[in-house]
């Protein structure tokens, strides 16, 4: 048996702030420009992609993050089976998108590490290394931005008020997590 190894096994709690690495979460990048692409995605995973910039949409089992006018990230809402890397939704998307040349579907499940941050001090934490202006962002849920944290690329998804998913590339995750926990320890 090949064993699944989490990139990080981390969980930390501070006053009014907690951080936790969650995995495995299925992550796909889908890309396309045509109108048929959007309907194809809708058919494949039964949800409408967010077309407004820096927003997201969510169904029962899936969340879609807007990344660019022709790029989205599809996430499973819950953890998936560690003993396979074949995903039903990916197959649906491949059949309805890439197989018929409407766009691209790419598995990036292990490309990104998902860090869930909860608590009232989330944006105080992020402001120690992220230049983005969270003043409006913090007040409404569903927002998605890509920016830098401690000079590392991040995707921030405002899942719920006081609950944020932060996605970072796997190879950077250890560095970023220790930067975050260091900063959090003083907040």
């Amino acid at each position: 048996m090949l064993n699944y190894n989490s990139p990080l096994v981390k969980e930390n709690s501070y006053s009014e702030l907690s951080m936790k690495v969650i995995n495995p979460i299925m992550k796909l990048i889908i890309r396309g420009k045509k109108r048929e692409f959007l309907s194809g995605v809708g058919k494949a995973i039964n949800m409408i992609l967010p077309t407004e910039s820096c927003t997201s949409s969510t169904s029962n089992d899936t969340t879609a993050l807007w990344l660019s006018p022709d790029e989205w990230m599809i996430l499973s809402n819950n953890v998936i089976d560690k003993n396979t890397n074949s995903y039903e939704q990916e197959n649906h998307l491949i059949n309805n998108i890439s197989k018929i040349n409407l766009g691209a579907v790419v598995d990036v499940t292990d490309q990104y590490v998902l860090i869930n941050i909860e608590g009232k001090k989330i944006f105080d934490l992020l402001s120690t290394g992220c230049p983005f202006n969270f003043n409006d962002f913090r007040n409404k849920k569903g927002g998605v931005i890509q920016s830098l944290m401690a000079k590392i690329d991040i995707i921030v998804h405002h899942k719920e008020i006081n609950n944020v998913n932060l996605l970072v590339r796997r190879s950077f995750s250890e560095h970023l997590y220790s930067f975050l926990s260091d900063a959090a320890s003083r907040i």
Binding site: I29, G32, A104, Q111
Partner: peptide, 9 residues
């Protein structure tokens, strides 16, 4: 369409 997958593998 281009997508970086360096860290995926």
């Amino acid at each position: 369409y281009l997508t970086s997958v360096t860290d995926h593998y």
